[in-house]
């Protein structure tokens, strides 16, 4: 085939990719940025400026919510890692054959179900007339119905639950690829379990830890369902602010600025995590 022919083939192959990325990712984000820079000064008249961003910084409710969302998301990520790591290690290294497949599937199945259904489950469990409250009353631990919903604990439970898969799967994959003899060699050379964990297992699992953390952090930060349904009207989650600016208040300019701030926050933290651990985006995400 001629060189021109293969060149044409390359262009044809690249066309859908470029069409997708340009029209659905790049241009919309540029558009979002442009809108975030326009201030409404009258009916259908706009000026360019950073006014929307100024509103964000002058209104404590906004940046408090922003900081709270970031903080809670980081906490949720750390918790998910702490809870998920032993489970991933167990699946990857302490089981084999059929029981390994079964355990892994048991981890996967809950996440094929819509997040809405999962959150609904937690609502039934935690609400005042819910299962947990009734169970504790039955045990006599509490006297009357107790509301476990609509607080930070409920939000955290839901966030960790909803993100667990995205932590466990990359961890199992990287831990699976750790040669058992490395662990044995460490042990043979006199290491304790703790120093094997610190010096061999964790460094090896680092790409999995980073990719798991990035995805979980991003999912928590961008989550809307869980904070709204489990945290209630006053859950103070930043995506809630974006939603209300767009849908309820119809202030798209401020909403776009909020969106851009959220995007900036997630990019900064993802970038910092990659830099700190010496990983690259292509290596950790492109599996």
């Amino acid at each position: 085939m001629s060189k021109d022919g293969s060149r044409l083939g390359l262009i044809l192959l690249m066309a859908p990719l470029l069409l997708w990325l340009v029209t659905l990712i790049i241009l919309p984000h540029i558009g979002l940025f442009v809108v975030s820079l326009s201030e409404k000064v009258g009916v259908r008249t706009y000026e360019t400026g950073f006014g929307n961003y100024a509103v964000f910084f002058t209104e404590p409710l906004y940046w408090n919510t922003f900081a709270r969302t970031a903080y809670m998301s980081i906490m949720a990520t750390a918790l998910t890692l702490l809870i998920g790591f032993p489970v991933a290690y167990y699946i990857a290294k302490l089981t084999r054959g059929r029981s390994k497949t079964t355990l892994f599937l048991m981890c996967l199945i809950p996440f094929w179900v819509s997040e809405l259904v999962r959150t609904f489950g937690w609502m039934i469990l935690l609400r005042e007339t819910g299962v947990l409250s009734s169970f504790l009353q039955y045990l006599g631990v509490i006297n009357g119905p107790v509301e476990f919903l609509y607080n930070d604990f409920a939000i955290m439970t839901g966030l960790v639950y909803t993100s667990m898969l995205f932590m466990v799967v990359p961890l199992v994959t990287t831990l699976d690829s750790l040669d058992d003899s490395l662990i044995e060699a460490g042990y043979d050379l006199g290491a304790s379990s703790l120093s094997i964990l610190r010096e061999i297992i964790i460094p090896h699992a680092m790409p999995g830890i980073v990719s798991g953390c990035i995805v979980v952090f991003m999912l928590s930060l961008g989550n809307y369902l869980t904070p709204i349904l489990l945290g209630g009207k006053d859950s103070l989650w930043f995506t809630g602010l974006i939603y209300s600016q767009f849908i309820t208040r119809f202030n798209w300019e401020l909403g776009s600025a909020f969106g851009f701030l959220l995007l900036g926050l997630s990019s900064v933290i993802v970038f910092a995590a990659l830099k700190l651990t010496g990983q690259s985006l292509g290596k950790t995400m492109g599996r």
Partner: peptide, 21 residues
């Protein structure tokens, strides 16, 4: 005596050198 306390060392079949160090 557990393996990390035994006065024996082992060269593994595929050597098991730690790639992270």
């Amino acid at each position: 005596v557990p393996p990390n306390k035994r006065p024996v060392s082992m060269v593994f079949q595929h050597l098991a050198l730690f790639p992270m160090m």
